[in-house]
Amino acid sequence: MNCGQIKDILLTDFLDGRLSLESTKTVDEHLSGCLACRALLMSAQQVDAQIKSVPVIEQAPFHVWARIANKIAQPVFCWQDFLGWGGRSRFVYGSVMAGLIVILFVANPILSQRRMATADSDADIVMQLVYADEDSFFIEADLSGIDLGSIDYL
């Protein structure tokens, strides 16, 4: 193993004690003959020690707990709680919603057919009116364009 290969192992698995005994032996052999890698390992150990050296805080300050307890004690309105929307009832609501969606899908074609039938009858009436209007228009147009005096009555 050369220094390039060992550098990554030193900074991770070796330092954190994740290597097998056999691999540890190989790295140790390399370290015994390589000053640069020994220096790198020492630096990494110093960095870790510095991070660990900070005074250990066992608990967050007491007033943080006081604030949390105060917030928890305040009643919070929640729609999910109001509807009982949690746990197994979620499945009940889900099933009901799925059922409604299926009903809508089934009912939609029937409703649309009815709507079309109504629309057809409405359309017929409208068309009749249009034809009636057209007829009267043509009648009027014919009368306006004709000189009644020139008509040769039989």
């Binding site: 990554d8 900074l11 991770t12 330092l15 790198l40 630096s43 990494a44 960095v47 870790d48 510095q50």
Partner: peptide, 17 residues
């Protein structure tokens, strides 16, 4: 995780130096 730790330690060593 391993590669992030390796890079972090390399950077910290360089920074410390």
């Amino acid at each position: 995780v391993r590669s992030r730790l390796s890079r972090a330690r390399m950077t910290l060593i360089a920074q410390k130096k």
